[in-house]
């Protein structure tokens, strides 16, 4: 017999709790103030503007290093989120034991200066093997179609149990 669907609030709360745990566990994400917006399984990373993110005070423009870190975080969280999704759907919320993917390489394209406002990013997993994955990340500010940076990275995935 098919199980009765869970109430929507229960599902949402479980997903949000799992995601919040993932983000709260990384000090550097807290330091930069990175947050995540979730719609179903789609994540959008948000980097709220802060003065300490500026690299060129004369323009002013976001520091390339802050942008690079933001994109790399977006890629890593996406990888962890996708690999824990099934477990979360089955009712597990404790993801504190989730091992992290290791960045092998990360290439950032700076398409235009990062403006002193909030930035957004989404990651797409282009290839997901047992050990290696390739992830592309796009970042924008005011207009979704006007990217200010994009990146491609390769990651070594932690060994899966079972």
């Amino acid at each position: 017999m098919k199980k009765k669907p869970e109430p929507v609030q229960v599902i949402k709360q479980r997903r949000d709790t799992a995601l919040a745990q993932l983000v709260a566990g990384v000090p550097y994400m807290q330091f930069l103030g990175v947050q995540f917006d979730r719609r179903g399984d789609e994540l959008t990373a948000i980097l709220p503007y802060a003065d300490m993110l500026i690299g060129n005070p004369m323009l002013p423009a976001l520091h390339g290093g802050a942008t690079a870190a933001f994109l790399e975080m977006t890629a890593i969280i996406e990888l962890q989120w996708v690999s824990m999704w099934d477990a979360v759907e089955e009712g597990q919320t404790d993801q504190s034991q989730t091992a992290m993917p290791k960045t092998i390489d990360f290439t950032i394209d700076y398409l235009r200066p990062g403006l002193p406002r909030d930035a957004y990013a989404r990651a797409r997993i282009n290839r997901s093997g047992r050990r290696y994955t390739s992830v592309h990340v796009e970042a924008w500010q005011d207009n979704r179609s006007r990217l200010f940076a994009q990146a491609t990275g390769h990651f070594l995935m932690p060994p899966r149990n079972g």
């Binding site: 000090p27 550097y28 330091f31 290093g65 690079a68």
Partner: peptide, 27 residues
Amino acid sequence: DLRFVGDPATGVLHGGAVSALMDTCGG
């Protein structure tokens, strides 16, 4: 700096912090 840690289980710095250093040094 503990605030720059990427993996709290190991205490290893986040790659992003190293990227920021590389970018600054390159510039």
